[in-house]
Each structure stands twice: as C-alpha cells, then as structure tokens.
Computed example of a mutant assay.
Amino acid sequence: MKDFLTAKDIQKILKVKQAKSYEIIRELNREMQKQGYKVIRGRVNKAIFEKAYFYNEEVKTG
C-alpha cells in the first residue's frame, strides 16, 4: 500500500487535470510545512490527502 500519492494518483482519484493535481499537492504540502513536517516535492501523504478531500462518515451532532 502506498503512503504517498503522486499527481497521477490524484488525477485518477479526483478526475482532474494534471495541473490541478500538482496544485493540490503544493497546497497540501505547504500546509504540512507550516505544521513543521518535511515534505517530498511532487508527492503528498495519502492520509493527509484523504483527510482534506473526503468526508468522514461519522457526523457529529450538537
């Protein structure tokens, strides 16, 4: 199982163009760097990507 996703992976998952997938990677990696993490250019951590782009099935009510 892959821990990191490439632009091609994101293209397939979100059905976006290559330029958009690289934009997503840059955005998520910037956020990770602000939190003090090291990043790999052109790749994004799969767990971070999933957290940002997929809703959690558990819905909290107030």
Rank of each mutant, 00 (worst) to 15 (best):
V39F: 00
I24T: 05
K34Y: 10
K15A: 02
V39Y: 01
M1E: 06
Y22K: 10
E57C: 12
K60T: 09
A19L: 09
I40H: 01
N56P: 05
Q11D: 12
K34M: 12
A19N: 04
I13W: 04
Y22E: 02
K34G: 10
G62W: 13
K2S: 14
M1W: 09
K8D: 12
Y53P: 02
M32R: 10
F4K: 13
F49T: 05
R26K: 08
R41D: 09
F49C: 04
R41C: 05
I40V: 01
N56Q: 15
D9L: 09
D3Y: 08
T61A: 06
G62S: 14
E27L: 11
R43V: 00
K17W: 00
G62C: 14
I13R: 12
E50T: 02
I24K: 00
K34P: 07
G42P: 01
V39P: 05
R30E: 15
D3H: 09
N56H: 14
I40T: 02
G36L: 13
Q33P: 06
L14F: 05
S21N: 00
V59K: 14
T6P: 07
K46G: 07
K20I: 01
I13G: 07
K46E: 03
E23R: 06
I10C: 05
N29G: 10
Y53S: 13
K8W: 12
T6H: 07
Y55L: 14
E57I: 15
